[in-house]
Amino acid sequence: MRMWRNFVDLGAGLWTTLRQLGRISTVSYPEAPLNLPPRWRGRPTLTRDPDGDERCVACQLCSAVCPTRCIELQAGERADTRRYPLTFRINFSRCIYCGLCEEACPTLAIQLLDEFAFSKQHHADFIYEKDALLIDGTGKHPHYNFYRHSGVALGDKNKGEGINEKPPVNVRSNLP
């Protein structure tokens, strides 16, 4: 009886192996492109808002949250008081594609591409400056503009003209 059971198990195992005959299981990466899931986390980019201005306001939350400390930036200020990153540097030889920067980014500026495996001759070439990170598009969030939601005035947007804002109060009035 026990011997019969052993033959059945052996046969089942053999059948599993035989079933794979004729199927191709290996992928010829990198010649053949991978079919990545839509939420794949690759390298970060900086996107622009629908008006075409860069979304990043240099709040430095990404560099604070980055577990490998690979993001470094310096804030600058435009003539119209808009904050922007004067420099934005990511060291991709340190980046682990964890996506925490994307989660932390309050203006949806940082979005992750599906690019994850890129090779360079030198370590220094892995340090991407802002011009290599900034793309000309809105990425996954085509309509979001941080400055329409925040309370600060900027350019043609005055106080009270943002989304869900009352017109500015008249502080000289004592009427109820």
Partner: peptide, 15 residues
């Protein structure tokens, strides 16, 4: 140094 040194000619600060 606001703009890092030319690539390949030494490591900028971030590195």
């Amino acid at each position: 140094v606001l703009h890092s040194a030319v690539h390949g000619s030494g490591f900028p600060d971030a590195a």
